[in-house]
Design a protein around this nucleic acid. Structure first.
Length: 818
RNA sequence: GCCGGGAUGGCGGAAUGGCAGACGCAUCGGACUUAAAAUCCGAUGUCCUGCAAGGGACGUGCCGGUUCAAGUCCGGCUCCCGGCACCA
């Protein structure tokens, strides 16, 4: 008998699949139902680890399984090839980002091929190549033409010492990761996409995504953060204008004892301009403005504020209330000004305690009246209004409507819908990205690069010295151009686009990756999309998956697509961790798949990755566990090879029947696991169980050779999506001429063979397992009760106690209550 | 801080509200072997009890609740992970 030697045949099969083009798709072919299986395209960093492998192996299993179910499966791959790490490499190691990226792509391509992942390689797209980013730029123009791309001031992290804009990742505790200088907040004019204009549709259409995980939909819903509230106008004393504050808790307005402005607020700037603020206040404002404040820091940071000397009027109480400026109010959300109700908001409470501001209870807890003196934290729940004039006694819910109506009648406020979602800042002061196709002309102003002039090529020859400007600005050949309108001297936009723009439409490009006339073919895209199955990491739950949905909707509005949502079904896999932490080079806990493949072969790696746990959950890597997968494949190999020389003894009909039943049950369970939640770990365990059963049947030589042959062949097909190399090799050895994917369909099962004559039911007494009884399957409740109560073991265990009640759960359990 | 998720033997994990620990790893014992490796067979949650067959109690992060029955449902916590808008 031959030993299992994967190295002898794995690359042979990879070549066969390639030669027979089993993963190639003719997009025009309509003879079969289409299935678009998409994995999130990788960022080509140095090498892929087993965490990446999980993503692509899952995609491959789905693609192979769906092919076997008779679908015409499109499974493409590409590279999200622009981005920060390439530029870091350029600065550190003096290698050009393009060279570094393309080298990585080469290496990763070889890796993916050696893993037996089946892609249609003719459809490869690379976002950093001009034939791709030409169309990213085209998409920018489409948004610009629709008025969805615009410029406004926004802040960036700026390192004064390195003279460069930093990514959030490069800021460690407020300091630059390279030189440890304190990072400053700087305002500059930048490009935005008006995604907030689509907020309602992005929210509403989540309803249609019935095959998305709930957790992802919940996260997106919260990210969009639609809230209903009131914009309240607070008159400023001594001025002719009012301050707008948005609140979702208008029921607490009688407790608003001061208002707080963000340091960037226009009123603050006006007062500074007019010299109305004291030096200490101005210093405070500038200090806070300079510090980097992110939404994630607001909760943790020490609240700091200063009284501006100005007062406003609470429009409901008529009370004169102080105006503060504080670090915990951000310009990003709402109007950059909030009314403070210390008794009912945690941040306001903390701030009021620190600065000894009055805390007034206006909402009482109906279950447990609040004593203001004993309050240790804000009461943020809803309740019953107190100290609230005519509105006392109302519930928060009633009061929200009544007060809003009153405010609207009296012009004190207006009901408003507010979103947490902010417009998408796409400008990057970086080199390694798609240039924004805009030209600035002294005469004509902001002018689009005409479509016929695309792509705006990224020059190769640039300096990476940090200078405080985008490297492109230092490249005169790039910057200096002529105005497409008037032909006069003009300068190019030097910012590049966020890489999330590249990844918001790549799945459209896979249908026509080489088309130099258009970004995508509407007809083909409408036929093949929405993507039937999208697979990627949970970390993309909000940003990438919202951006891609947004761009899809814009293209839909332009009549270029006939579907509103790009991804019909979504699967988010968990991380593989090692020693309790995410794999990373810096931690030195990266498990390289290639080392395992050398030792055990690809199928072992694939099988173990799939067996490690439920694919949507994080899993801990164990080198020991790999051995188990390898042993199993060895056993599978030996057993399959043993069919030839198998000599049955006395055939045991009931063992045969049982084995046939087990086979059908296994097919059923595996099929359900494949169709349902991608439960590959349990699917594989069912194959292991069946193999264990066969092994003892073979040892006892009690089944016929034909049955054995049939079962082994079916098992080979069942395991083929997970371990395709060994499957095809064994299939060939068992006399089958064509590879499984091109010939074999997924096995079916017969419900009839699953029926059992007799079943064993557990018997509990007072919820504790005490005995078991055998009953004929299909026995009715009364019959089962009779059988149970006359069973000698049960009678014994009851010890004469009076039976109060018997619960019979069909085919499950019996519980006797005594 | 906010949003989302998770916690089950020595380990990875399994379990439509219905026999907790399938399957695999590890460990121990046995068979085969001159021996080892490989392979095959068996045992393996914890504690108590029994010479033994066996019997009993406890047990799914913590506290409480619903139910004939809770890992699963509800309320309240703890810790860990992902995201928080310039990592991708």
């Amino acid at each position: 008998m031959q030993q299992y030697k994967p190295e002898k045949f794995e690359s042979k099969w990879q070549k066969t699949w390639q030669d027979k083009a089993v993963f190639s798709v003719d997009a025009l072919d309509k003879t079969k139902d289409k299935y678009y299986c998409l994995v999130m395209f990788p960022y080509p960093s140095s090498e892929l680890h087993v965490g990446h492998a999980r993503n692509y192996v899952i995609g491959d299993v789905v693609a192979r399984y769906k092919t076997m179910r008779g679908f015409y499966v499109l499974s493409p791959i590409g590279w999200d090839a622009f981005g920060l790490p390439a530029e870091n490499q350029a600065i550190k190691h003096k290698i050009h980002p393009k060279e570094w990226t393309l080298n990585n792509i080469k290496r990763i391509t070889a890796q993916l091929k050696s893993w037996g992942i089946g892609y249609d390689w003719d459809r490869e797209v690379t976002s950093c190549k001009p034939d791709y980013y030409k169309w990213t730029q085209w998409i920018f123009l489409k948004l610009h033409q629709k008025g969805l791309a615009y410029k406004k001031m926004a802040s960036v992290n700026y390192c004064p010492s390195c003279k460069t804009v930093l990514a959030n990742e490069q800021v460690i505790d407020g300091d630059c990761e390279r030189c440890d200088s304190e990072v400053e907040d700087r305002e500059m004019e930048q490009w935005f996409f008006n995604i907030t204009g689509y907020a309602d549709r992005l929210l509403g259409d989540l309803e249609e995504l019935t095959e998305w995980p709930d957790r992802v939909k919940t996260m997106q819903k919260n990210w969009i953060g639609k809230s209903y509230g009131v914009e309240i106008y607070f008159p400023i004393i001594g001025e002719d204008r009012k301050l707008s504050c948005f609140t979702t808790r208008v029921d607490t307005i009688f407790g608003a004892s001061y208002v707080v402005l963000a340091p960037e607020h226009q009123f603050i700037q006006d007062w500074i301009d007019k010299g109305r603020l004291g030096k200490d206040i101005v210093d405070f404002v500038f200090r806070i403005r300079k510090t980097v404040r992110k939404s994630k820091d607001v909760g943790n940071m020490e609240k700091e504020g200063i009284f501006t000397g100005k007062y406003a009027l609470n429009p409901m109480t008529g009370e004169k209330i102080p105006v503060f400026c504080a670090n915990y109010v951000l310009m990003d959300y709402g109007s950059g000004a909030v009314m403070a109700v210390p008794a009912h908001d945690g941040r306001d409470f903390e701030f009021a305690k620190k600065y000894n501001l009055p805390i007034r209870l206006v909402i009482d807890n109906p279950k447990e009246p609040i004593e203001i003196e004993k309050m240790a934290a804000a009461y943020e729940d809803e309740g019953i209004l107190v100290n609230s004039g005519d509105f006392c006694g109302l519930s928060s819910e009633q009061a929200k409507t009544k007060i809003a109506e009153y405010m609207e009648r009296n012009n004190i406020g207006k009901r408003q819908v507010q979103y947490k979602l902010r417009d998408w800042l796409i400008s990057r002061q970086r080199y390694w990205g798609a240039p924004i196709p805009i030209i600035y002309c002294q005469k004509c102003g902001t002018v689009e690069v005409p479509e016929s002039d695309l792509p705006v090529l990224l020059p190769d020859n640039v300096e990476f010295k940090p200078t405080g400007e985008s490297p492109l600005k230092l490249c005169p050949e790039f910057v200096n151009t002529v105005c497409p309108k008037c032909g006069g001297e003009a300068k190019r936009e030097v910012d590049t686009m966020d890489t999330f723009v590249d990844s918001s439409w790549y799945f459209l490009r896979y249908l026509t990756p080489d088309d130099d006339k258009k970004a995508f073919d509407t007809g083909l895209v409408n036929r093949w999309l929405p993507v039937d199955q999208y697979i990627g990491g949970i970390e993309h739950a909000t940003m990438h998956l919202i951006y891609a949905r947004f761009i899809n909707k814009v293209l839909y509005d332009l009549g270029l697509l006939n579907f509103k949502e790009p991804f019909k079904r979504l699967f988010t896999q968990g991380m593989i961790v090692k020693d309790g932490a995410k794999m990373s080079k810096s931690k030195g806990n990266v498990v390289a798949p290639d080392r395992l493949i050398e030792k055990y072969g690809v199928d072992t790696m694939r099988l173990y990755i799939l067996f490690i746990g439920p694919p949507e959950k994080d899993a801990e890597w164990s080198d020991r566990g790999v051995e188990g997968a390898y042993r199993f494949l060895n056993r599978f190999w030996r057993l399959s090879c043993s069919v030839d020389g198998y000599c049955p003894g006395t055939i045991d009909k009931s063992r045969e029947k049982n084995l046939t039943r087990t086979l059908n049950l296994t097919i059923k369970k595996i099929t359900e696991d494949m169709e349902g939640g991608f439960k590959f770990n349990t699917a594989i365990s069912f194959i292991m169980e069946l193999l264990n059963t066969i092994q003892s049947d073979i040892a006892d030589t009690c089944i016929s050779k034909d049955l054995l042959d049939e079962i082994i062949k079916k098992l080979i097909v069942l395991i083929s999506p997970f371990a395709p190399h060994i499957a095809d090799e064994l299939y060939l050895r068992m006399g089958q001429k064509t590879p499984i994917l091109s010939a074999q369909s997924w096995p079916g099962y017969s419900e009839e063979s699953l029926i059992q004559d007799e079943i064993e039911l557990p018997v509990q007494i007072n919820g504790r397992l005490k005995s078991k009884v055998k009953v004929f399957s299909g026995a009715d409740e009364q019959t089962i009760k009779n059988i149970v109560l006359s069973n000698s073991d049960v009678i014994d265990k009851l010890k004469g106690s009076a039976v109060k009640k018997i619960i019979v759960v069909q085919n499950r359990i019996i519980n006797i209550v005594v």
